[in-house]
Simulated assay, not measured.
Amino acid sequence: MKCKICSKQLVGRRDKLFCSVKCKNFYHVNLRKVTAIEVEKIDSILHRNRSILLEVLGKNKVQVTVERMMLEKKNFTFKYHTHQHINSKGKVYYYVYDFAWMEFSNDEILIIRKSK
């Protein structure tokens, strides 16, 4: 087998992946950098989505129904959410942290704030 970084022949255990601590550290540092960049992009989208839901719902309301187009105009990204829940009727609630939305067939969106 050869080192994942410098391609030197490996000596020692069969499951060894790197020839030295230097190559191992190089690999993991770069892996963390790439991961951090992607996580930052996605986290930014999630935070923007939450801010949009908070703006639309307001501070005192628990739920509101809005047109899908209104969220799209505010650059809400529907494909990014933190988790989802399927209720007893088979409807899917998509969550962004403490806010959720459910899509209706008539292009209306129900937005709710999860109770604490």
Rank of each mutant, 00 (worst) to 15 (best):
2 K>V: 14
2 K>G: 13
3 C>F: 09
4 K>E: 15
4 K>D: 14
6 C>W: 04
6 C>L: 13
7 S>N: 13
8 K>I: 14
9 Q>S: 10
10 L>I: 08
10 L>T: 07
11 V>E: 13
11 V>G: 11
11 V>Y: 01
14 R>W: 04
14 R>P: 11
14 R>V: 15
14 R>L: 11
14 R>H: 03
15 D>H: 02
15 D>T: 02
17 L>V: 05
23 C>E: 10
24 K>H: 08
24 K>V: 02
25 N>T: 09
25 N>I: 04
25 N>D: 01
26 F>P: 05
26 F>A: 11
27 Y>S: 08
27 Y>P: 07
28 H>W: 03
29 V>N: 13
31 L>P: 08
31 L>M: 12
32 R>I: 15
33 K>F: 06
33 K>E: 07
34 V>A: 10
35 T>Q: 15
35 T>P: 12
38 E>P: 00
39 V>W: 01
40 E>Q: 09
40 E>V: 11
41 K>L: 01
41 K>C: 02
42 I>D: 01
43 D>C: 05
46 L>Y: 06
47 H>T: 11
48 R>C: 03
48 R>M: 10
48 R>P: 09
49 N>S: 02
49 N>I: 09
49 N>C: 06
50 R>W: 07
50 R>E: 14
51 S>W: 03
52 I>G: 04
53 L>F: 00
53 L>M: 05
53 L>V: 03
54 L>M: 14
54 L>D: 15
56 V>H: 03
56 V>P: 00
57 L>G: 12
57 L>I: 04
58 G>M: 01
59 K>H: 00
60 N>P: 00
62 V>E: 12
62 V>D: 08
63 Q>V: 14
64 V>Y: 03
66 V>Q: 08
69 M>Q: 12
70 M>H: 07
70 M>S: 14
72 E>M: 02
75 N>V: 02
75 N>G: 07
76 F>V: 05
77 T>M: 02
77 T>S: 13
77 T>Y: 04
78 F>R: 01
78 F>L: 09
79 K>V: 15
80 Y>E: 02
80 Y>S: 09
80 Y>G: 06
81 H>Y: 13
82 T>G: 04
82 T>D: 03
82 T>A: 00
82 T>C: 00
85 H>S: 13
86 I>N: 02
90 G>M: 07
90 G>K: 03
90 G>R: 07
91 K>V: 12
91 K>S: 12
91 K>F: 06
92 V>F: 04
94 Y>K: 15
96 V>F: 06
97 Y>I: 14
97 Y>G: 10
99 F>P: 10
101 W>E: 14
101 W>Y: 15
102 M>K: 09
103 E>Q: 06
103 E>K: 09
104 F>N: 13
106 N>S: 00
106 N>M: 01
107 D>T: 03
107 D>E: 05
109 I>W: 00
109 I>E: 06
109 I>Q: 01
110 L>F: 04
110 L>S: 08
111 I>E: 05
111 I>D: 09
113 R>K: 08
114 K>H: 14
114 K>C: 12
